[in-house]
Design a protein around this nucleic acid. Structure first.
Length: 721
DNA sequence: ACACCTTTGTCGCGG
DNA sequence: ACAAAGGTGT
């Protein structure tokens, strides 16, 4: 075996068969252990590749594991079942669509498709969208699916909320069944039901898979846990690896208790802790340990390192989000001149909306960056439009695809004509597609709508033919051309339209990557390949499309899980933003925020910089901010505190840096946005400044008296919180 | 039916 | 501040 392992890692890799729980702290070599354990199972226990079932949290992690395993074993690993729970469930459902009561051409829908469908259902059920928020409905349904509860199984509702939710859930389930649609939660749920209800299949897979390995076990939900319990009944070995301190997906149904329950449900489980951290400096690790120590109910684990203390954690107090971004840029420029690799620097934030200001500052400074998350390639409207043409061609029952594209681009079929189709479909229990055909045959559609509908029908029909015979790239090309989508955006003026046209063209090249990605799927028929491509677009929307250009890495804290960088910035460390205001009053949610903070800190290898702004634009309003409670949880002696700076707007509106000097006692502590106290006027906020030195004046907006200009040298302003 | 304008909601993380 | 939904005029 090639890799050098420490004692604990070695123990975990070579632990006897049976149940094994590896509690692996951040940066303790968890992936290495998993890969080596698989290799050990194969070489020492003659485990056959097809008998191994390995689950990771993201597709990216799965790919990495495959690559590392192949390198370790010097052979192909295509036979092994490695993937996310979602992709494995999807594979199972494709193989056993009949037993799962699914149409062969069922389609996977993403969160956006789900939301559209729910909006339609709320309208059909005459539910007031003001009162029952769409997002809340979606959340309700998804959590029920994560917990393995069908609408029918919901307790008899005695309050209005439960009754309304149940009705919507039921209608949604039905709509999905009729249209042949499967959402993310449904993949897992139905996959589980398939195995649980079908004894033959259950036995088949229980006998086929004898070794199970699960990564990021702290982020599994109830259904995933039950999956494992069911499948692994006759297993020779079950290895789960996780870190309860890094559980950050509770909002997606993850059950941190799963890691606590493992020892009960999987008897005689051995527990091994990996506590030596190979990633971070002593200082960074001390900061991380101090923050996570504030959480209750941990399994208990103290990371240590042999590394030197290293540099202090920089804490920068910014005037506002512009100032924060400028600080980040200035620091990055310094790191570049001292020879650091751009890709080794990451800027992390709690919510995607924060990226915009940072991006703008990086662009102005001509620093290349690449960004994860936000709007992803396969989620763009024009891409989803193009894919909807394929979806309808593959599955004419898919009414949601029909509705999406019937008049996109515009072909003269408006609300009126669509209403006729809907009525026809309801009356005779037809799909919209069939109803549209009837509408033409029975002269229900007339004039412009009739012409448009004929065009539409022929587009889909010719696509259907091409799908049956031609290779994937040709199919996609035909879809964006014959639909008129590409032409529509090409003819439109403006940069946005041009981008959209380019994206459509890129969709054709995206099929190239895909062909390579599934080449172990060998000679599947053309139509099945299109279906696979559509599923892939839904399941791997995010992890695809890594910007090939190297640069600074921008991403959310969630997206950073599992990654490491030499230099890490965590921006927006403010109450309300991080911890998020939805979480601040809920102790459980707050602990998850704290774990997220722990995850963020432990991404850094050499240097960590934390920033927050005293003033920030939120929803277009300037808001005064307080620093995050998590900052106070880091021991003071680990911090290098930088503040007392001021950015004033010069005439050309470029920000310039000025230090404010008042009198000796509070020199350097007063700057724009700062809360101060005046002996006579009371508390207020500094909102403007002019002049310099002894003559400098500041405009203080007093809480009770409003704005006042004061000479800074005489005002005797005291900083307050 | 569609282009243009006004109003409203959003900014919580993702397979 | 921005994007999407909704309303109005042609």
């Amino acid at each position: 075996m090639a890799d050098v392992l420490n004692a604990a890692q070695q123990q975990a890799v070579t632990a006897d068969l049976g149940n094994l729980l590896v509690l692996a702290g951040a940066g303790s070599g968890k992936t290495r252990v998993l890969v080596n354990r698989i290799a050990w199972l194969i070489t020492e226990h003659n485990a056959m590749l097809p008998s191994i079932f390995a689950v990771t949290f993201t597709n990216k992690a799965a790919t990495e594991m495959k690559t590392r395993l192949a390198a370790l074993l010097h052979r192909s690993t295509t036979n092994i079942w490695i993937g996310t729970f979602h992709s494995l469930a999807h594979r199972l459902l494709r193989l056993h669509w009949q037993e799962s009561n699914l149409p062969q051409n069922f389609q996977v829908i993403d969160a956006d498709d789900q939301l559209r469908l729910l909006r339609k259902i709320l309208q059909q059920l005459n539910v007031d969208e003001e009162r029952w928020e769409l997002k809340q409905v979606q959340y309700f349904i998804n959590r029920k699916k994560d917990d393995g509860i069908r609408a029918q199984k919901l307790a008899i509702a005695n309050n209005l909320f439960d009754r309304v939710m149940r009705d919507i859930y039921q209608a949604y389930e039905q709509a999905c069944n009729v249209n042949g649609l499967v959402d993310f939660g449904e993949l897992l749920f139905r996959g589980y039901e398939l195995l649980a209800s079908n004894v033959l299949l259950q036995q088949h897979y229980q006998e086929r898979f004898t070794h199970f390995l699960v990564d990021e076990f702290q982020d599994t939900n109830a259904i995933q846990y039950n999956w494992l319990k069911l499948l692994a009944k006759k297993a020779q070995s079950v290895t789960v690896v996780g870190d309860d301190d890094q559980s950050i997906y509770g909002w997606r149904g993850a059950r941190i208790e799963n890691i606590h329950r493992f020892e009960q449900d999987f008897p005689a489980a051995r527990v091994i802790r990996l506590e030596q951290n190979y990633r971070s400096t002593g200082t960074i690790l001390a900061a991380a340990n101090a923050v996570i120590a504030c959480n209750d109910g941990r399994l208990g684990k103290k990371l240590w390192t042999q590394q030197a203390q290293g540099e202090l954690v920089t804490l920068y107090t910014a005037l506002n989000e512009e100032d924060e971004a400028l600080f980040v840029v200035k620091q990055i420029q310094q790191y570049i001149t001292t020879g650091n690799d751009l890709t080794e620097i990451a800027v992390l934030y709690r919510s995607n909306a924060q990226s915009r200001v940072l991006e703008e500052a990086l662009v102005r400074a001509s620093i290349p960056y690449c960004i994860y998350g936000g709007l992803r390639f396969f989620e763009r409207a024009e891409i989803k439009d193009a894919l909807a043409y394929l979806r309808l061609a593959v599955n004419p029952q898919d009414n949601s695809a029909f509705e999406r594209i019937i008049n996109t681009p515009a072909r003269g079929i408006g609300e009126q004509s669509l209403g006729k189709i809907r009525a026809l479909a309801n009356q005779y229990n037809l799909s919209y597609w069939e109803a549209a055909k009837q509408g033409i045959a029975n002269d229900i559609l007339t004039g412009k709508a009739r012409v448009g509908m004929r065009t539409f029908l022929s587009i889909i029909e010719s696509l259907t033919n091409i799908i049956a015979t031609k290779p994937l790239p040709i199919v996609v090309e035909q879809a964006i051309n014959s639909s008129g989508l590409l032409q529509f955006f090409q003819q439109r003026p403006g940069e946005e339209a041009r981008n959209r046209a380019e994206n459509l063209a890129e969709l054709v090249s995206a099929t190239d990557n895909f062909v390579i990605a599934i080449n172990d799927g060998e000679n599947i028929e053309p139509k099945a390949k299109v279906m696979e491509f559509l599923s892939y677009a839904a399941l791997e929307a995010g992890e695809q499309k890594r910007n090939p250009a190297s640069g600074i890495q921008l991403m959310t804290l969630h997206a950073a899980k599992g990654l490491e960088f030499s230099i890490v910035f965590i921006c927006g460390m403010e109450e309300g933003l991080f911890p998020h205001h939805f979480s601040k009053d809920d102790p459980t949610a707050l602990e998850e925020e704290r774990r997220l903070c722990y995850v963020g800190i432990t991404r850094a290898m050499r240097k960590l910089l934390i920033t927050y702004a005293e003033q920030r634009r939120l929803f277009g309003r300037e808001e005064l901010r307080k620093k995050s409670r998590f900052i106070a949880e880091i021991p003071h002696n680990l911090l290098d505190i930088q503040a007392g700076r001021i950015y004033t707007k010069a005439a050309n509106s470029v920000f310039s840096l000025t230090r404010v000097i008042t009198n000796k006692s509070n020199a350097g502590t007063i700057y724009l946005g700062r809360r101060v106290k005046h002996t006579k006027f009371g508390k207020g906020t500094i909102v403007d400044q002019e002049g310099a030195g002894d003559k400098m004046r500041v405009n203080v907006h007093f809480d009770k008296l409003g704005p006042k200009w004061l000479v800074a040298a005489f005002a005797k302003l005291e900083p307050v919180d």
